[in-house]
Design a protein around this nucleic acid. Structure first.
Lengths: 244, 244
DNA sequence: CGCTAGCTTGAGAGAGTTCAAGAATCGTGG
DNA sequence: CCACGATTCTTGAACTCTCTCAAGCTAGCG
């Protein structure tokens, strides 16, 4: 965003804001530069390490985080047994914390996958912008609607018991792609199984099979941010291609 | 809503508006009576028969429907094979069509379950209200957030393969309850299986078992709007009580 | 070097699917 | 009013994918 080059307190150079720039859902779209300036917006440039908790379930809402790099998983717990399920994954350009802002408290556990960098904006500022700039609020609402659509599609694509795990895993991996690249955000088997609602063992067997077929390359290191993958082949599996 | 007694073109008596009255998410909360009056709001009182399509996927967004009685199922299709999945069920007080308003076109197939009555409001009116009354828009955004939370919880509660179908069916039925009554909206086995993502046969076996145990009473007629159920017993099953 | 967390691999059991046939119910029209 | 076809639902039996339990492996870190 242009104005951030002058008003963002965390401003470090134009490259930092690429994630927001030119996107349809750029966070501050619809707000005139001078209006933002008048707010004396306090935007911090923050980062979270791999596995770090960004906020916990029921935490009070204080800030939004616009993701610049990395991914964030949003998890909930099913029942009293500590089994967690991941209900959404946010990627660069997405906003973490809208749920909390609207509900008052956090609706998920939010955890960084890989190293996450982004812009942190106080909720009070966002609320004020919403009240003074209905167009800005409308954009936020559209983004919320977009999250809802994605969650519904997630439900449809990934949680159908009658679709074999291999196929659902392929669909999941395609969703976890880094933009249009051939890289896939690196999630643990535990996470992958929590998303598809299969056991860790089954997830392991499927991923091992994929790796053996050359559908994806796993570097040994757990701290790697990405898998490399054969996107076209994954798409074939996702569409129900027979096992070779 | 008070003002509807004077401004709603469909006004038929105070009983008609009970569904909206006094609820936290009453649709027009946050808008002064005179402001609504100034818009010359055209609200129609409409009804849909059992099984009637309210809108189809990709239809252009034209109106919202605030449900007064009955339920509406929102469905999507998984893949090219005509297998549909129901991703959300809307009940009295809920708003049908917010997705379409924000995305431009309908995101689901919306079908009436039982007879549906409600208030139909042109999208243009709602958009104007949003721009002129940020507080009203904020309420709508909260409602959208609420839908997102429910969908996520739906995902967590109903789509976990490791939870037996009997348990998930009990949870589902409890979600389909008519308010706090002991009545459950009457869905076909096809619909129930499309929600839990199990086969129609499995759904039949589970429902037959429930009926045999006295957990619910099925009237013979398909056109009945409700099942009667033993809520406490269903809650026990939903929590994982052993099969008797 | 040893410990821990994450991953792999195996064999048996079970819940749900699939395929197949039949029963009940509904709406329609004679 | 009843017969008819079309849905919708029921029931059975074999199969299969995934879970479960159990053991062993590997990588990463102090």
């Amino acid at each position: 965003m242009q104005f951030m080059s002058t008003h963002c307190t965390a401003w470090h150079g134009i490259r930092e804001c690429r994630a927001c720039d030119g996107k349809e859902n750029a966070f501050f779209a619809g707000v005139a530069h001078q209006d933002v300036a008048a707010l004396h917006v306090q935007i911090d440039n923050v980062s979270y390490a791999l596995g770090e908790t960004i906020y916990r379930l029921d935490a009070p809402a204080e800030t939004l985080l616009v993701i610049r790099t990395g991914a964030v998983k949003l998890a909930r717990y099913a029942g009293k047994d500590a089994k967690q399920r991941i209900v959404r994954v946010l990627k660069p350009g997405d906003v973490v914390g809208m749920d909390a802002m609207l509900a008052g408290t956090a609706q998920h556990h939010a955890v960084a996958v890989g190293e996450v960098r982004g812009c942190r904006i106080p909720i009070a500022v966002v609320q004020q912008l919403c009240m003074e700039h209905p167009g800005f609020q409308w954009n936020m609402m559209r983004q919320l609607q977009s999250s809802l659509r994605e969650t519904e599609q997630w439900l449809v694509d990934l949680t159908c018991g009658s679709v074999p795990a291999r196929e659902r895993m392929a669909r999941l991996l395609l969703r976890l792609r880094d933009g249009d690249s051939d890289r896939i955000y690196h999630f643990s088997l535990k996470d992958l199984s929590a998303m598809l609602c299969i056991t860790l063992e089954t997830a392991s067997r499927v991923i091992t099979e994929f790796a053996g077929l050359g559908l994806m390359v796993r570097t040994g290191k757990h701290s790697e941010q990405f898998f490399s993958a054969d996107i076209a082949a994954l798409q074939r599996v996702a569409a129900g291609a027979p096992a070779p």
